[in-house]
């Protein structure tokens, strides 16, 4: 037989993992895609009839009777993309210098600082975000300190705004940007930096010609790791954005838990997934081209 014993035993060995992933990872995904093409049941659940109006509501066709196209979904989606994108920029600007700084520390301090940066993970996300509510609300810590110092005369109304959502989002996803960047900064051969300096490159030239291009893979990984959860996040906008800053994640959550329209929620999720996949593929391609051009 063409399938030799080696290949066969390899397949056999891989089968537990494949079966596990197949059932618990692919399975729900397939169910979601199927549901997105079904008719919503009256009290949640689905009716097993083919139904394309779920996508019609999002993308612009309607039967004019039960399901209506509403551009608000597209608007919410665009806002989500914008917030996620700004969050990538903000976390990048915070994490890159931090990673450089940490890398310059003596080795025993380095481990400690990396540990501290990942420490918030040990506390529940909801608890941490409530702390931010306490900090940001009109009578919160931030305002009392600023008022006390006389920097402002009126409390800043920051809670339940997009700014609050951005602050919370950046806070939550900071480690996802930091760790990949730090990994690539740490991996960077210091003698390359020295070589640049030796050849007459000042600190700024060395950074833009050597350090940054060589740590770009870490930046790319960090950007993806921050962008995706930012886009789908619903806890941060829920707690810090209130009802005003609705993101796509909230919308999906509402469809499943409040509106009990599973097919529409599924259709929203599938749409997000496809758009995100497209964006990431374009991004990776562009990155590859940049690397080749260098």
């Amino acid at each position: 037989m063409a399938l030799n014993s080696r290949t066969r035993s390899l397949l056999l060995l891989l089968s537990p993992a494949s079966i596990f992933l197949g059932i618990f990872f692919l399975g729900p995904l397939i169910i979601m895609v199927i549901f997105s093409f079904l008719e919503p049941g009256l009290y949640g659940g689905v009716e097993w009839n083919f139904y394309h109006w779920n996508y019609g509501r999002i993308l612009g066709w309607a039967d004019g009777e039960w399901e209506e196209f509403d551009p608000v979904y597209a608007a919410i989606f665009l806002r989500s993309v914008r917030i996620a994108f700004i969050n990538v920029i903000v976390t990048l600007l915070i994490c890159y210098p931090t990673a450089l700084w940490v890398n310059g520390l003596p080795s025993r301090w380095r481990t400690l600082v990396v540990f501290i940066i990942t420490l918030p993970f040990f506390v529940s996300l909801v608890v941490r975000l409530f702390c931010w509510v306490l900090i940001l609300r009109p009578s919160g810590f931030m305002n009392s300190i600023l008022l006390g110092l006389g920097i402002i005369s009126e409390p800043i109304d920051i809670i339940f705004t997009e700014t609050a959502v951005l602050i919370g989002m950046a806070y939550v996803l900071l480690p996802f940007m930091f760790l990949p960047i730090y990994a690539s900064v740490e991996k960077l051969d210091h003698s390359l930096v020295e070589a640049s300096s030796d050849l007459g490159g000042g600190p700024i030239q060395t950074f833009f010609r050597i350090t940054l291009p060589l740590t770009l893979p870490g930046v790319a990984a960090g950007a993806i790791l921050v962008f995706i959860p930012s886009l789908g996040n619903f806890i941060v906008p829920d707690l810090l954005g209130g009802a005003k800053v609705l993101m796509i994640g909230n919308l999906v959550e509402q469809q499943f838990l409040s509106a009990r329209n599973w097919p529409f929620g599924s259709a929203l999720s599938v749409t997000i997934m496809l758009v995100m996949l497209t964006l990431i593929i374009l991004y990776l391609r562009r990155l590859k081209r940049m690397e080749i051009n260098q």
Partner: peptide, 12 residues
């Protein structure tokens, strides 16, 4: 100028 032990050529 220096010729480094591991050459330190810029890989990119």
């Amino acid at each position: 100028n220096t010729v480094f032990q591991n050459y330190a050529l810029f890989p990119h």
